[in-house]
């Protein structure tokens, strides 16, 4: 039987649900949370972190922790939103 999955990719948090006998059911992540921060981090140890753990180390690794990237998806570099974000976020937009 085919399964239906829905992903709400939010700017700050994301959420995943599946359709189960006609009703949507939100599924939890490995930490038991129903939403996961839409954050990805690349650590100096070449580790890639996503979600809550990426958020927890953001202070220590601001240049390689990407958040709110949904605002940038699909926009051109010259777009006013992108140009504004360049001055707002600690990571480099190039």
């Amino acid at each position: 039987m085919t399964k239906i999955i829905g992903i709400d990719l939010g700017t700050t948090n994301s959420c995943v649900a599946i359709l189960e006998s006609g009703k949507p059911r939100v599924i939890e992540n490995s930490e038991g949370a129903r939403t996961t921060p839409s954050i990805i981090a690349f650590t100096p140890d070449n580790e890639i972190l996503v979600g809550q753990s990426a958020k927890r180390q953001a202070v220590t690794n601001p240049k390689n922790t990407l958040y709110a990237v949904k605002r940038l998806i699909g926009r051109r570099f010259k777009d006013t939103v992108v140009q504004k974000d360049i001055h707002l976020v600690p990571y480099k937009i190039a």
Partner: peptide, 25 residues
């Protein structure tokens, strides 16, 4: 084994870490 609350900590900064950018990222 499931986290209830993370420990709130201060960590030692790596020398020159503030300029570190992962070019592969």
């Amino acid at each position: 084994d499931r986290l209830l609350r993370p420990a709130m900590v201060v960590i030692a900064q790596q020398v020159g870490e503030s300029t570190y950018i992962d070019q592969k990222a």
